[in-house]
C-alpha cells in the first residue's frame, strides 16, 4: 500500500540514521609529532548515551570540539544529522554579568525565540534542572553544582537532539557529582537526547553510558568498546558498575603503560 516515494522514509524509520557519524577522522596539529586523533570511526544512534573514555592527552576533548563544529579536522568527516549540537564544558562558562535565567535566555535568543516566550521557557528549563525560582540569582551567588545545572539548562535551551559534554562534572565534589549524574540520566531518558560524554573517570563512564569507547593516547584512537547492559537508573557504587569499571580500568592502565617505554 505504500507509495513508492514513501519507501525511503519508511526505511529510515526502521533503521534510523545516526545522530553523529564520524568517519576516518584524523587531526594533526604539528607535522613531526604523532596525530592527536587517528582513524576515528564511530556512530551515535538517536537517543544513545556514549561515553568517550581516555587518559589525558588522548584527544577526547579535541574530538568533541570537532563534533561541535569548533574546528576543522585534518582529514575524514563528521556528519551531524540533528542540527547544531549543544556543548557543555568542564567549567560552567556562564556569563557572569547575566542572571541564571539571563544565561538560559541568551541561548534562546540565539535561536530567535521571542522575548516573552524566552522568559517562560527559561523558567521551564530551570525547573527541569531543579532550580525553580532561582533564575534571578547571579552566577556568583550559586554553588558549583547549581552553576553546572544552569549550564545544563542553557545547553537544553539550544533545543538540540545532541548533547556533547566535555568532562562536565570533573570539577565537582563527589556528592554533587552523584546528584548531577542522576539529573542527567533523568533528562536524557525524558528528552530522548543523544549524548556524547567525555570523561577520564571510568566509574562515571560505566554509571552513565550505554556504550563506553576507550581511547588510546598519542595517537588518539578508539581501541575498544563495551556495551553496558545494566538498566538505568543505576548507582555508581553498585556491584555491576564496579565489576565492569574494574575490567575497563585494566585496559586503560595497560594503554597508559605503553607510553612508559
Amino acid at each position: 500500500m505504500a507509495h513508492p516515494a514513501l519507501q525511503p522514509a519508511l526505511q529510515r524509520q526502521a533503521t534510523p540514521a545516526p545522530s553523529v557519524r564520524v568517519t576516518k577522522l584524523a587531526q594533526v596539529f604539528e607535522r613531526d609529532r604523532p596525530p592527536v586523533l587517528d582513524r576515528i570511526d564511530f556512530d551515535v544512534a538517536p537517543g544513545e548515551f556514549v561515553c568517550l573514555l581516555g587518559a589525558s592527552g588522548c584527544g577526547k576533548s579535541t574530538l568533541l570540539s570537532l563534533i561541535a563544529g569548533l574546528g576543522t579536522p585534518t582529514s575524514g568527516s563528521i556528519e551531524v544529522t540533528v542540527g547544531r549540537p549543544a556543548l557543555m564544558f568542564q567549567e560552567p562558562a556562564l556569563l557572569p554579568w547575566l542572571t541564571a535565567a539571563g544565561n538560559v535566555e541568551l541561548a534562546l535568543k540565539a535561536r530567535g525565540v521571542g522575548r516573552r516566550e524566552r522568559r517562560v521557557e527559561a523558567e521551564r528549563l530551570l525547573t527541569l534542572v531543579n532550580l525553580t525560582g532561582q533564575g534571578r540569582k547571579r552566577v556568583h551567588e550559586l554553588s558549583g553544582g547549581m552553576r553546572q545545572r544552569v549550564a545544563l539548562a542553557r545547553a537544553l535551551a539550544q533545543d538540540s537532539r545532541l548533547l556533547l559534554m566535555d568532562e562536565p562534572f570533573a570539577a565537582l565534589d563527589a556528592i554533587t557529582r552523584d546528584a548531577l549524574h542522576e539529573e542527567l540520566i533523568r533528562l536524557w531518558s525524558e528528552q530522548g537526547l543523544s549524548v556524547v560524554f567525555v570523561t577520564h573517570n571510568v566509574r562515571e563512564a560505566v554509571r552513565l553510558g550505554q556504550r563506553v569507547l576507550l581511547m588510546s593516547s598519542r595517537p588518539g584512537r578508539i581501541v575498544r568498546e563495551w556495551q553496558v547492559e545494566m538498566t538505568q537508573p543505576r548507582a555508581i557504587e553498585s556491584p555491576g558498575v564496579s565489576a565492569l569499571a574494574t575490567e575497563i580500568t585494566q585496559h586503560l592502565r595497560a594503554e597508559i603503560s605503553r607510553h612508559a617505554r
Partner: peptide, 9 residues
Amino acid sequence: EAGLDALEA
C-alpha cells in the same frame, strides 16, 4: 539536590 544547594550556595 535542594539540600545540597542550600548547603553549598
